[in-house]
């Protein structure tokens, strides 16, 4: 007869012998048991710290520099914190850079031009992109996938080269001028490149996929029988569009518009390559202020000003996205 103790031992042995099977799997199991307490915090912490250091901290530095004094030195700005003899930190805040921005008409002009160009471009993208997205949705299945792929495809090729392509089309001796002369519409080349027109074309061309894709995603979720229901209830196509389709695609319209408007406002490459010296946008001014004039405080102040202009649209975008995410 077994004592309870012996019985216990036998049990332990039997479980032990069964666990010998596959030492390797046993070790991984042990690893999983060990890490199971802490892993969630690790998974959160790594990207969190990365973004804190490389995304958030840099903004504070830009902010700090924007309120520093510009100096001819390296780095070309004054230190914000000075150690006094008592060991107390005194903070000197100089709003010179911001005052400079407000006083100089050039900056205010650029600021307004940027917003105007990006708003108009966004509107053109919407007017063009909406029917395209709608047409894609309405196409038969296979065609739809191909068309969608065709909209995404340019995104995978170089942005820079797509802007460059328009330099060739719009140049004085470029394809468009050649075509117009050949057709007899004009007899000598007209100025297309290095103009506002060129910048509009460039922005619409490069950013229109960002309008079409959110619209498409939004329309895809749309129940097409709603149109039939509206028609059944006596709505004409036009009124169906304004009373059913448009309100339901509003989230897509907002998301797409912001995805075009926000980056277009800070655009640098397009005004530089297609606008030349004739179009000045805020992103370009920032780059030049920084690169050519080496005035870091002013560049930083421009960055902060640009950010302020975009904070509201960014917040709206976040809000729309999070609402979309829930539904």
């Amino acid at each position: 007869m077994m004592t309870p103790d012996a019985d216990n031992k036998a049990n332990i042995q039997s479980t032990h012998s069964s666990s010998v099977a596959g030492v390797g799997s046993r070790i991984t199991e042990l690893f999983f048991n060990k890490i199971h307490e802490k892993w969630r915090s690790i998974v959160v912490a790594i990207p969190f710290i990365w973004l804190l250091v490389f995304f958030l901290a840099p903004f504070f530095i830009v902010f700090k520099i924007s309120i520093a004094e510009s100096l001819i030195a390296s780095p070309p700005f004054s230190s914000l914190f000075d150690w006094t003899e008592e060991g107390v930190i005194t903070v000197r805040v100089i709003f010179d850079s911001f005052l400079y921005l407000v006083e100089d008409e050039l900056y205010l002009d650029t600021y307004l031009t940027s917003i105007r160009i990006s708003s108009i471009s966004t509107l053109i993208c919407l007017l063009l992109g909406y029917p395209i997205a709608y047409a894609i949705i309405k196409s038969p299945d296979t065609t739809r996938h191909i068309l969608l792929l065709m909209v995404i495809l340019p995104f995978w090729t170089s942005f820079l080269l797509r802007v460059y392509a328009w330099m060739g089309l719009l140049a004085d001796q470029g394809t468009i001028n050649d075509l117009l002369i050949w057709l007899g519409i004009i007899d000598k080349p007209i100025r297309l490149l290095y103009s506002h027109f060129a910048v509009y074309v460039g922005i619409v061309y490069t950013y229109i996929p960002f309008m079409i894709l959110p619209l498409y995603a939004n329309m895809e979720k749309l129940d097409m029988t709603l149109h039939e229901a509206a028609a059944d209830l006596g709505a004409k196509p036009m009124s169906t569009f304004f009373t059913v389709t448009l309100p339901l695609t509003l989230p897509g319209i907002i998301a797409g518009s912001l995805l075009v408007f926000i980056p277009a406002t800070g655009e640098y490459v397009i005004p530089d390559l297609l606008g030349g010296g004739n179009v000045s946008m805020i992103g370009k001014v920032l780059y030049n202020e920084f690169n050519a004039n080496h005035d870091w405080p002013v560049a930083s102040a421009v960055a902060i000003a640009l950010l302020l202009a975009l904070v509201v649209p960014m917040m709206i975008y976040q809000h729309v996205q999070s609402k979309e995410g829930v539904s």
């Binding site: 490389f54 995304f55 901290a57 840099p58 903004f59 530095i61 830009v62 520099i65 912001l258 995805l259 926000i262 980056p263 406002t265 800070g266 655009e267 640098y268 992103g283 920032l286 780059y287 920084f290 870091w296 560049a299 930083s300 960055a303 640009l306 950010l307 975009l310 649209p313 960014m314 975008y317």
Partner: peptide
């Protein structure tokens, strides 16, 4: 935020950093 942040701002702030 990085999805909608203008590149010039991201670039400048990272350089300053």
């Amino acid at each position: 935020a990085p999805l909608v942040m203008p590149e010039v701002i991201t670039g400048l702030s990272l350089l300053m950093f």
